[in-house]
Each structure stands twice: as C-alpha cells, then as structure tokens.
Design a protein around this nucleic acid. Structure first.
Length: 263
DNA sequence: ATGGTAGGTATCCTA
C-alpha cells in the first residue's frame, strides 16, 4: 500500500500536479492539506477521474482544509476538533486491514515564536499538546495507525537548510521541536521517512515561494511527515520525497511525501 | 534588517 501526503496549497489550482502524482507516484491513498475549499466546491470529479473513488473531505472556505482520497474503501470517516478550535485541520478514517489514517494540518504559527503575544503560535503549541494527550491516552492499544500531514515543524538539524539560522524561526524553535518529539513519543510513533532516509542527510519537503531560485538556494525545511504506530512499523518498505514536484508548473510550495507499506 | 511570492477573498487575510 502506497500512502502519499501533500500540502496542495489550494486543490482547485492543482489539477495538473494531482494528475502527475496519481500517474507517477501512484498512491493508493492521498492525504491532502490546505485544500482551501468548502466541501460543496471540492473537485470530486478530478479525484474520481484519477481513480480515487473513496473520499473523506473536510474543508472550509479559503483556509486550511484536509481531504483523504483513496482507491481503497474508507470506513468511519470523521474529524476531531482539537484544542477547542473549529478549523478544518484533521481527518481520520479506517482503511482495509483496520489501518487508521490521520491526516493533519498543524497551524504554521505566525512569525513570533512566543505564545504570550502570538495567538497563532499559541494555537500551534496547543494543538500539538492536545494531540499528545490524545495519543498518550491510547498508548499501547496495539492499533495500526498512520499519522501524516503538514505538521509545520522541522524536528531535526538536517530538516532545515541552516539549523543555526533557524533556531529562532517558527517551525524549528526548540519549544516546537521538543513538543513534536513529545507527540511522537506519546504513542511510540516511528518517523517512517527518517527510518528510510538517514537522519545525517539533509531532507526538505517545503521551499518558500519567496525565493528567486528555490533549487539553487535550496533553503528548504522538512515540514511534512509520515509516522507509523508500533503495530504498523514492521510493515514499512520504503519512503520517498518527490523533490522535483517543486519545479512543476504551478507548484505548491510543498512536495509529496510517500511511504510504501506491506500490508 | 528587510522584503521577497503565492493563494483566496474582497480591498487584507494567511502562509
């Protein structure tokens, strides 16, 4: 089973990119973030035409929005409300074999890494903390869980183009990376991508639009993740980041991240 | 230290 996560940054503008993902990466399950569209206007026919007949769409107008597109049947499709805020930032459903897949879009967090003065950063930390409580309460339940999405945090030194220069930049501050590590540890999640691609190697999934030449400057960050629960970790067979997608026509600022599982 | 680009919406918000 191939599972891809991709922050599309407006799904309605990415028909070409979606087709390339479907044909070249061939995921069975495609988890999207930042769809930026209310459910009634989601391009369902686009998904259907690419073979994704099972959809769990959870969007809102203009901001955020997640969706799970699947070639395999989906059951128990729902979403949780985290830290009391109604944003469309989470979708969860169950795949054949009892695999529970969570699609997450954690807040970017604004510019100032101080929860006292910046409500967006406060929200980001609160959502990570709420997720941590949720998974800590389920620790050891033996479930097959995949957690994917744009977590908007680059945890490792090699997950950013310059560890030193980004230590005070939202996405790589110690308060964020430590919170993300606590979330990962709460349920014993395996960072599937780093289990395949060595942590010594620089690896990015996002490059800002505000750059003359994203590839030459290569000032990226690894913000998009795929984690596996202990029950599912032995099924991991591969992981890849589709860096070239950043150079496609009409690119998102994020690229697809894929794992392959033997289930 | 600053501003750079992109997307959605509505004349400014978020990333």
């Amino acid at each position: 089973m191939r599972i891809t996560t991709w922050n599309a940054n407006s799904v309605r503008l990415r028909e070409t990119a979606l087709r390339r993902i479907a044909l070249e990466i061939r995921p069975d399950v495609l988890c999207l973030q930042e769809t930026k569209v209310e459910d009634g206007k989601f391009p369902r026919e686009m998904a259907e035409a690419l073979g994704y007949h099972h959809l769990h769409i959870h969007g809102q107008k203009a901001y955020h929005g997640v969706a799970i597109l699947s070639k395999l049947p989906l059951e128990d499709c729902h979403s949780h409300k985290w830290c009391g805020i109604e944003d469309s930032r989470h979708a969860v459903c169950t795949l054949p074999g009892g695999i529970e897949i969570h699609d997450l879009y954690i807040p970017a967090g604004g510019d100032i890494p101080d929860p006292e003065v910046n409500p967006k950063f406060r929200h980001k930390l609160a959502m990570v903390a709420d997720l941590t409580d949720y998974f800590a309460a389920r620790r050891g339940d033996g479930a097959k869980v995949v957690l994917v999405g744009d977590l908007n945090i680059a945890p490792l030194e090699t997950d950013v183009w310059s560890h030193r220069q980004l230590l005070k930049v939202v996405s790589h501050t110690p308060v964020e990376t430590e919170a993300l590590n606590r979330l990962q540890a709460s349920y014993g999640f395996l960072d599937a991508v780093r289990a395949v691609i060595p942590p010594e190697q620089k690896l990015f999934t996002w490059w800002s639009y505000r750059n003359r030449d994203w590839a030459a400057s290569d000032r990226g960050r690894r913000l998009d993740h795929v984690w596996l629960s202990p029950a599912l970790a032995p099924a991991l067979r591969g992981a890849e980041v589709c860096r070239e997608a950043r150079g496609w026509d009409m690119p998102s600022d994020h690229v697809p991240v894929t794992v392959e599982l033997e289930v």
